[in-house]
Design a binder for these strands. Structure first.
Lengths: 191, 191
DNA sequence: CCTATATGGTATCGAGTCGATACGACAGTC
DNA sequence: GACTGTCGTATCGACTCGATACCATATAGG
């Protein structure tokens, strides 16, 4: 029974799992389900190249069919809008409605934030760094998309173009300061 | 739009949420659902005073009714057994079957473990400590049960009794070395 | 001893996830 | 124009999950 002597890695994994369940249990607030909150948060953080059903499915690790249904429920609740993409008529552009953005201000995840606020600043920075490493490591090991920040991407150029301070060398699009902070489907961490 | 400048706490919360989703997406393996794996893990780690439907419901943050159904599906799959508690005929004692224990060796969570193994040892210890603080802080803030380790409890006494090395001063029961490592419904962190 | 009350568990219902499967619409390539 | 891959949708069945109502048993107070 080598399971008796729970190693530190196992305890750590159990901790992360349990924190996940904690968030999950809180996320039934406001008559929504966990996946709904995750969708709203994603659309708030994702850049304009990533606000599509396909990107959301990749982000959540769900099938396209499942995500399609979830989006419909959110649209019926008036939290979300869906339009055909002007340049690729197969694709759909997603956007939060005013009510969607408003609801996001009562995000149950902010309860966790206030607990995190009590941590020592230096240790919190180390925590972010470590968890980021663990997360992207695991995602890449599974062949999934990391969805990192735009400005941390190898294609992010600090080149002025069309009145914007930055530029994406992959998609050939100008980027604002704000764009650089959002997460992107295509992001590949800089070397 | 103060949301544009995502603070470090918000990024940290998002990271934890995303790690939770990562585990969730993996947990559809072996024809089980996430809550099934969590149940199996709980029964593996919980001491004999905590292997009941009520304790599991408190652990998961779900209602008794929901847990009751989930347990039935696991029993139907032959992974779990349920007996009436000999001293309280309202209560049920849960136990993993041989197949249940066997399945637990293919726990998809072990994929995360291997990633965690790559972390620096010192930082990993700090990580465990910090996350433990965050988790128990959040749980207590919500009025929920921390489910800490028996040996970290204020009622854990290093008193020999009935041939066992330790003793629970709350329940008046002798405790083995192994008992001290398991998690308990009644645990209250020592001062 | 008997009754109130609290606690542990179950049964049923409806909304909704979720994977699987099959399908339709459209883009890009030859 | 046909081929092929990608994006999205519709439908089905298993199951979660909260809500509600309910039963069985323990415990406390008179």
């Amino acid at each position: 029974m080598e399971a008796m002597e729970t190693s530190e890695t196992e305890r750590l994994a159990a901790l992360i799992e349990r924190l996940g369940r904690l968030i999950y249990a809180q996320a039934h607030a406001e008559n929504l389900l966990p996946v709904h909150w995750e969708t709203l948060r994603f659309l708030h953080r994702a850049n304009r190249f990533s606000r599509s059903p396909a990107a959301l499915a990749a982000y959540l690790g769900l099938t396209k069919g499942t995500v399609s249904q979830t989006l419909n429920t959110l649209i019926n609740k008036g939290l979300l809008e869906k339009r055909t993409h002007p340049k690729d008529r197969r694709s759909r552009q997603l956007a939060l409605t005013a009510r969607g953005n408003q609801l996001l201000e009562q995000d149950p995840l902010s309860q966790l934030c206030s607990t995190l606020h009590g941590l020592d600043t230096a240790r919190r920075s180390a925590l972010v760094q470590d968890l980021e490493q663990v997360l992207s490591g695991s995602l890449i090991a599974q062949g999934r998309t990391p969805f990192g920040q735009c400005k941390e991407c190898r294609y992010f150029a600090k080149t002025h173009r069309a009145g914007q301070p930055h530029y994406c060398e992959l998609l050939g699009e100008p980027l604002s300061e704000f764009d650089g902070l959002q997460i992107c489907q295509e992001q590949q961490p800089a070397a």
